[in-house]
Amino acid sequence: MDSEQVYVPQTTSKPTLADLLTIESSASIFYSYARELELSSLLSDRDKKTTIFVPTNKAVMALSRKPHRGPDPTVEVELTEEQFDKLSKERVQNWVSAHIVPEYPLSLDSNAHNTLLQGKSISFTPISKNNGQGAEWSRVTFEKGVKIIGKKEALNGDLYLIDGTVSTD
């Protein structure tokens, strides 16, 4: 009696960054902004290695002005709906880009790491009261004390959940 060979498709053991964002309910607001942009294809590209810092929904909700609104204007300006939409998309693009570092793996050190937002970089500061215990990401802060509260590894990079947001200035 001949034994049949069974074909088993090759699968990867790790999801992509886009897959992780799809199932990470605490990051749904960030991902809803990111999905509106062309750069979101980077998150599902298996060949592009990247590190993303994803603000939790709570962190985004705590912002005084949401990413599409930009900074509080000091001068009232009349915009057409088309101009407002274009400006909103540009602000979202900048905000999401400021949370993506095109490096992987990323060393969480005091060196400046460029983000996808031109002219914007981030660096990390060791937490002074930490005694070297715990994961590397739990021992640093960046951008005015923003803490990393979790890390998930993907096929195409690392996703760090953060308790604040990266500024676009």
Rank of each mutant, 00 (worst) to 15 (best):
R69S: 09
K129N: 15
A18K: 01
S28D: 15
S107C: 12
G132V: 12
G150S: 11
V75L: 13
W95T: 13
M1I: 08
Q5M: 14
S32P: 12
N94F: 00
Y160T: 02
V140K: 06
P73F: 08
S26Q: 13
V146P: 04
T12W: 07
S3P: 05
L37Q: 03
T16L: 01
F30T: 13
Y33H: 08
G70S: 04
K49I: 03
S121E: 15
S123W: 15
T22C: 06
S88N: 07
K144I: 04
Q10R: 14
E24L: 09
S26M: 08
K152D: 02
I52P: 00
G132N: 07
K120H: 05
K129I: 05
P71D: 00
G145Q: 04
L161S: 02
S107M: 12
Q5S: 05
A59W: 09
I127H: 10
K151T: 02
L87D: 12
S64F: 09
T56K: 03
L87R: 04
S138R: 04
M1L: 11
A112Q: 15
I100P: 10
A34S: 06
A62E: 13
A135L: 10
G164E: 02
D19V: 07
E24A: 09
Q93G: 00
E38R: 00
K120L: 06
G150Y: 00
A27S: 14
V92L: 12
A27R: 02
S138D: 05
R139Y: 07
D2W: 09
S13A: 14
F30K: 02
L87N: 06
Y7N: 00
A135D: 13
R139V: 04
A98E: 03
N114D: 15
K151I: 06
K89Y: 15
G164Q: 11
G70I: 12
E4K: 14
A18L: 13
Q83C: 10
L21H: 06
I127N: 11
S44E: 10
T22V: 11
S64T: 02
T51Q: 06
E81G: 00
S3K: 08
I23K: 08
W95D: 05
V77S: 12
K89E: 14
Y160H: 02
S97H: 08
Q5K: 15
V75S: 15
A18Q: 13
L63F: 08
H113T: 07
D2H: 15
E36N: 10
K48N: 02
D47L: 10
G145S: 05
G150E: 02
L161K: 03
N131M: 14
G150N: 04
K49P: 01
G70M: 03
L42K: 03
A18C: 11
V54G: 01
G119I: 05
A98S: 15
G145T: 04
P67Y: 05
S32E: 15
V166E: 01
R35L: 15
V146H: 01
A62N: 14
K144L: 08
A18N: 12
D72F: 09
R35I: 05
K66H: 11
L39N: 06
S44Y: 03
T165H: 12
K129H: 12
L39G: 00
K144E: 13
D19G: 07
E81N: 07
